[in-house]
């Protein structure tokens, strides 16, 4: 699965740590999602989408 997390984060000048704290997860989690090594669960995907005020499909796309 591809995602736009890194781009969305950069647009807001947030570090991985900033984003991790807002999501309530570790920086390693954010890094793993951004680099495509880990696909988040549906609840975490919803939290990410709500934080960026976007739909899940606008952030995550199938390969």
């Amino acid at each position: 699965m591809n995602n736009r997390l890194k781009v969305l984060r950069a647009e807001r000048n947030w570090s991985q740590q900033d984003l991790a704290e807002q999501l309530g997860v570790s920086r390693q989690s954010v890094n793993a999602i951004e680099t495509g090594k880990y696909d988040p669960s549906l609840p975490l995907a919803f939290r990410i989408a709500e934080l960026f005020a976007l739909s899940i499909e606008a952030i995550f796309q199938r390969d």
Partner: peptide
Amino acid sequence: LDDEYLRLL
């Protein structure tokens, strides 16, 4: 652990 990725590790 409330962090699902760390739990996976």
